[in-house]
Computed example of a mutant assay.
Amino acid sequence: MRTITVRTITVRTITVPTITVPTITVRTATTATTERVGEVLHLWALAPATVGACCVAADRGRARVPEFAAAALMLVAMADVGTGARLIAPVLWALLLVVGAMGLAALRGARRPRPAAGERMPHPSRAMTVMTALGLVVMAALMITMGTVAPSSVADAGGGHGHGGLGAVGGGLGMVVALTTVVAAGYVAVSAVAAVRSTLRLDRVQYVSMAAATALMAAATAA
Score class of each variant (00 low, 15 high):
Met1Leu: 09
Ile4Tyr: 10
Ile4Pro: 12
Ile4Gln: 13
Val11Asp: 15
Arg12Asn: 10
Thr13Ile: 13
Thr13His: 12
Thr15Lys: 06
Thr18Pro: 11
Thr18Gln: 12
Ile19Gln: 11
Thr20Asn: 08
Thr20Val: 14
Val21Arg: 06
Val21Ile: 09
Thr25Asp: 08
Val26Ser: 09
Arg27Asn: 13
Thr30Gly: 13
Thr33Lys: 13
Thr34Ile: 15
Glu35Thr: 14
Glu35Val: 14
Val37Pro: 07
Leu41Cys: 04
Leu41Tyr: 01
His42Asn: 15
His42Gly: 12
Leu46Glu: 07
Ala47Gly: 10
Gly52Arg: 00
Gly52Leu: 00
Cys55Glu: 10
Ala58Tyr: 10
Arg60Met: 14
Gly61Tyr: 10
Arg62Glu: 06
Arg64Tyr: 11
Pro66Ile: 02
Ala72Leu: 11
Ala72Arg: 09
Ala77Thr: 01
Met78Ile: 10
Ala79Leu: 09
Asp80Gln: 03
Val81Pro: 01
Gly82Trp: 00
Thr83Trp: 03
Thr83Leu: 12
Thr83Ile: 05
Thr83Asn: 07
Gly84Met: 02
Gly84Asn: 06
Ala85Thr: 15
Ile88Arg: 15
Ala89Phe: 01
Ala89Glu: 07
Ala89Met: 06
Ala89Tyr: 03
Leu95Tyr: 07
Leu97Ala: 05
Leu97Lys: 01
Val99Pro: 06
Gly100Ala: 05
Ala101Glu: 01
Arg111Ile: 13
Arg111Asn: 14
Arg112Cys: 05
Arg112Ser: 09
Glu119Pro: 10
Pro124Cys: 12
Ser125Leu: 02
Arg126Lys: 10
Ala127Arg: 07
Met128Cys: 02
Val130Leu: 09
Met131Tyr: 03
Thr132Ile: 06
Ala133His: 06
Leu134Phe: 12
Leu134Gln: 13
Leu134Glu: 14
Val138Pro: 00
Ala140His: 01
Leu142Tyr: 00
Leu142Val: 07
Thr145Arg: 04
Ala150Lys: 12
Pro151Phe: 00
Ser153Asp: 14
Ala155His: 02
Ala155Phe: 04
Gly159Cys: 02
Gly162Ala: 02
Gly162Tyr: 02
Gly165Leu: 02
Gly165His: 00
Leu166Trp: 09
Gly167Phe: 09
Ala168Asp: 04
Val169His: 09
Val169Pro: 06
Gly172Thr: 15
Gly172Leu: 15
Leu173Pro: 08
Met175Ala: 15
Val176Trp: 06
Leu179Lys: 10
Thr180Arg: 04
Thr180Trp: 03
Val182Thr: 11
Ala184Glu: 00
Ala184Asp: 01
Ala184Thr: 04
Ala184Ile: 00
Ala185Pro: 04
Ala185Leu: 07
Gly186Lys: 00
Gly186Leu: 04
Tyr187Pro: 04
Val188Asp: 00
Val190Met: 08
Val190His: 04
Ser191Leu: 08
Ala192Gln: 09
Thr199Ser: 10
Leu200Gly: 09
Asp203Ser: 05
Val205Cys: 10
Ser209Val: 02
Ala211Thr: 00
Ala211His: 00
Ala211Gly: 03
Ala212Leu: 11
Ala215Ile: 00
Leu216Lys: 01
Ala219Gln: 06
Ala222Val: 07
